[in-house]
Design a protein around this nucleic acid. Sequence first.
DNA 1: GTAACTGCAAATCCTTTGCTATGGA
DNA 2: TCCATAGCAAAGGATTTGCAGTTAC
Lengths: 123, 123
Amino acid sequence: MRFSKQRDLILNIVQDTRTHPTADYVYEKARTQLPNVSLGTVYRNLGQLVDNKLLKSINIDGTIHYDAFLDDHQHFQCKTCNRVFDIDINTKDFVSQVESKTNHIIDRCQIHLVGICKDCQNN
Amino acid sequence: MRFSKQRDLILNIVQDTRTHPTADYVYEKARTQLPNVSLGTVYRNLGQLVDNKLLKSINIDGTIHYDAFLDDHQHFQCKTCNRVFDIDINTKDFVSQVESKTNHIIDRCQIHLVGICKDCQNN
DNA sequence: GTAACTGCAAATCCTTTGCTATGGA
DNA sequence: TCCATAGCAAAGGATTTGCAGTTAC
């Protein structure tokens, strides 16, 4: 991967955004600093950054969101405020349980929890 | 919901297809029996059937798949043959563990496992 | 110099919607 | 009769792609 200021900016934006931004969000943010950047470039670079394991992508309601937090973790989405929270919970036991029960080899475990967040319960 | 032969056929197709069909798959299958059925009708009916809890929908790589197996269960996708297997595993303990750790209320838990299935390991 | 990258626009894929006509209760 | 539903076609949103020009190495 060759350096480009566009890719550098895009990576920084995702790293600075804790709310799991979409390509479109990144595009709007990038435009404030690099007005001529194109949406195609944003998509291409996000894809490359995922391929090179500098970012992760998650699918929320059919739209791809990006995440710079690379440690193994899961997501909780609040159906009231729509925010997506990181859930730091160990899935190893769960995964090995499924592996021995099914005889499939599992190398990725994505858990998507939906409910009402702590904050929204109080409002 | 009023009866229609289109909806009846669409529901039957999903119930008879264990491989988590997409709208397009259902459409092609439906056309063999009802050549004039339209893709819009298929989408509308699948949506209604989900709303009325006669079907479930799952998102796999950004595309919606339908599932007539309504009991609580999870999915395993083989990255070699791309088939999606049902995984019958209890998530209650896992969910309550997350609830007490985070104080969020969880009412849906979707787990998507990816790996190599039993069959593909032998080939 | 050259291959990777850009911006732009058009294309593509999946899904939804507006419309008028039809058909089930 | 009346309203849900159908078929058709056009619109929609998200993402990808083709191309000609530009830039990092």
